[in-house]
């Protein structure tokens, strides 16, 4: 009698788990197949501290004026992790632009760490909605720090393939102008650099107004990125731009930066898309 009861309960449990398992496998497989087969390769931009999701509007306008326009989607992440979407991605757009901004966009290491965790959540949600696996990343100022922390702490190769990261005026050593004085954040980022994707191509762009800084971020702080990325990723390139639009806030609109984004991100990804 006891055995009959145990076996009946077990059989019912197995049948229930079988239905659940079948549902889970079907759901996961459909989603994974969409992601695997997706040919969309967006470029995802993260603005710096105090900047809004409109930070890259001029850059997008400049690029879109030159050829086939890229659709633009803006995502605002609230402090509770809620996402608000503005704009849309055209169904046939293989290289859309996505901007991820944060309600808490304050400066400071603690805020940046939170922003990196929100960035991870936003990326997961975007993948669920648009089923892409490969994207390139651009971070302006502290947006580059958000990307670096994301890559070290939250990124998994199985989830996303990120071939290119470009940071614009990113202060890897905050406002320190000497490479001898490393901030807590820089030390953390250096010690975690073994988690960076090995196949990443990284471009760190610095602006100079007077050979020492871009008006806000010391060049030496941008250069400190080499301690994090050099020899930890596939390639690390340090680029310095100068001229009228080399001021920190103007970097995204700097003609050299626009040209760098086009030649180093958009064209290589378009070529890899055609090869698929």
């Amino acid at each position: 009698m006891r055995n009959k009861f145990i076996l009946t309960v077990s059989l019912m449990l197995i049948i229930a788990l079988g239905f659940y398992g079948q549902h889970w496998v079907a759901k996961t497989t459909t989603s994974q197949a969409k992601i695997q087969n997706s040919r969309m390769v967006p470029t995802i931009f993260v603005p710096g501290s105090e900047a809004t999701i409109n930070r890259f509007d001029d850059l997008f306008a400049t690029i879109n004026a030159k050829g086939a326009p890229h659709s633009v989607l803006k995502v605002q992440v609230s402090t509770s992790g809620q996402l608000t979407f503005l704009g849309s991605i055209n169904a046939n757009d293989r290289q859309p632009f996505i901007v991820i901004g944060f309600e808490d966009n304050q400066d400071g290491y603690d805020h940046i760490k939170k922003q990196a965790s929100w960035l991870a959540k936003a990326l997961d949600t975007l993948q669920d909605r648009y089923h892409f696996q490969t994207f390139s990343a651009v971070g302006h100022s502290n947006g580059g720090l958000d990307w670096t922390i994301y890559l070290e702490k939250y990124h998994a190769d199985d989830d996303f393939n990120i071939p290119i990261l470009m940071t614009l005026g990113t202060p890897f050593n905050f406002s320190e102008s000497s490479l001898q004085r490393r901030t807590e954040m820089l030390n953390d980022l250096i010690s975690g650099n073994n988690q960076l994707p090995k196949d990443l191509t990284m471009y760190s762009v610095a602006g100079t107004e007077d050979y020492t800084d871009d008006g806000i971020v010391p060049v030496q702080s941008v250069i400190a990125g080499k301690y994090i990325y050099q020899k930890a990723v596939k390639s690390y390139t340090q680029i310095t731009v100068s001229g009228d639009n080399a001021q920190h806030s103007s970097l995204p609109e700097n003609p050299e930066v626009v040209s760098l984004i086009e030649s180093n991100i958009l064209k290589p990804l378009a070529r890899s898309d055609r090869k698929q």
């Binding site: 197995i14 788990l17 079988g18």
Partner: peptide, 17 residues
Amino acid sequence: VYPTPMNIPNLLLPTIA
């Protein structure tokens, strides 16, 4: 071929995967 939910009894693997 497909991965299954973690900790699901192996008895169900051929059926659901």
